[in-house]
């Protein structure tokens, strides 16, 4: 196997410039997915049937269709949905965030249900209202238990973000492909992109482990 990174050396900075674009989309999507995921999870465990139903239908739709399809629907459909053509980056962050919320809500729901119901009873017995007890007592414990699953979800998000390439966003993936087209050398730039993704995932993994250690103080 002969690798010729020399021929693409000048283009490496161009590929690296894709990192902030990818990171922006992933960070915004993770934030949206996490916030909406908590709300959906609460919808799923409430006694109000309508909210259960809404959350279940939401999850089934976003889990039941390909992510790339959701991305295209939101991007190409935006003039018909919102009345304006939204930017590709906005479409990417929306579709990834909305999609991720479906998965995250399931993770959080399971996390909440795994907490001993005595915890909520103890809070109730002290006169703590349900919402407060959920926020101060139940969710922090649930988060600790589901952290590995959440990190996993964010890792998936980072890697899957490569498909934004299909709506023309010049992220890491697309840039490496462009460099390939210009130099007639595809293997090296794509290999380089792979290395960038791998490093980003490693950083996320280490970050997750650090947070986990912090949260395990009480064990």
């Amino acid at each position: 196997m002969n690798l010729e990174f020399g021929r693409i050396a000048d283009s490496l900075p161009y590929i690296l410039e894709g990192i902030p674009i990818t990171l922006k989309i992933v960070a915004a999507a993770a934030l949206l997915g996490f916030s909406l995921g908590i709300i959906l999870a609460l919808f799923k465990i409430t006694r109000i049937k309508l909210l259960n139903w809404i959350a279940d239908v939401y999850t089934s739709i976003f889990r039941g269709t390909p992510l790339v399809l959701q991305l295209m629907l939101i991007y190409y459909g935006s003039p018909q949905i919102f009345g304006i053509q939204i930017e590709a980056v906005t479409a990417a962050f929306l579709s990834f965030g909305l999609n991720s919320a479906a998965y995250i809500s399931e993770v959080i729901r399971a996390g909440i249900l795994a907490i001993d119901k005595g915890q909520n009873e103890a809070a109730m017995a002290l006169g703590v209202p349900y919402a407060r007890s959920m926020w101060d007592i139940i969710l922090p414990q649930a988060m600790k238990n589901i952290l590995p699953a959440l990190v996993n979800e964010f890792i998936t998000l980072t890697k899957e973000s490569a498909i934004v390439t299909v709506i023309g966003i010049t992220d890491i993936m697309r840039r490496s492909y462009i460099v390939g087209g210009e130099t007639y050398k595809f293997f090296e730039p794509i290999l380089f992109a792979g290395l960038i993704y791998y490093i980003m995932v490693m950083v996320l993994t280490l970050l997750g482990k650090a947070i986990e250690r912090r949260m395990r103080r009480s064990d």
């Binding site: 001993d116 005595g118 915890q119 009873e121 103890a122 809070a123 007592i137 922090p140 414990q141 600790k144 009480s218």
Partner: peptide, 9 residues
């Protein structure tokens, strides 16, 4: 409670 139910965190 029988099982204490202290807040572990």
């Amino acid at each position: 409670f029988q099982h204490f139910h202290l807040f572990p965190h």
